[in-house]
Amino acid sequence: MITDIDSLLYQAEAEYLSHQDLANFKSQIFSLEKRLQIYETIRAKETEIFQNVANQLSSNFSQEPEKIRRALKHWLTILRYCGMAMLSENPLYLKHRILEWLPEQIKAHQMQDLEQNLFSLLQKRLKRILNSEQFSILQPYLEQAEAALLR
């Protein structure tokens, strides 16, 4: 999205933007506003979201508190990067900054079951915190993370 706006800005150097370009620009700005709201919600409710997930995980995997802490740290980081990737509409940002970084660590610690469980709980929690439209905007980035880390 940032690139789209950039290209419109470059285009405006040579001429006034056409109606279609302006409509595109407005749509980008409108979309950015929605994304900002989602980002702000996730940021403001980070602790609440993950505390709920942590409590449920603790009862599902009561013998493994250290692994739960590690998995929570992973997904705190992943959700933060998903948020920024969503805000800038940049799946490559998510890929390079975290999804090429974590898979082998998750594999080495043999935490796939726990992380899969955490991911399901996190999705459920996010669906309650965000409305359906907001969740659908964030969802592709969560799915991108799931595909890279858990499948």
């Binding site: 602790t47 505390q51 409590n55 603790s58 739960i68 975290i98 970084w101």
Partner: peptide, 17 residues
């Protein structure tokens, strides 16, 4: 019980440098 607020404040959460 794990306290997530403590977890966030006590540890840095960096990605791929």
């Amino acid at each position: 019980m794990i306290n997530v607020a403590d977890l966030i404040s006590e540890s840095s959460l960096p990605g791929n440098y």
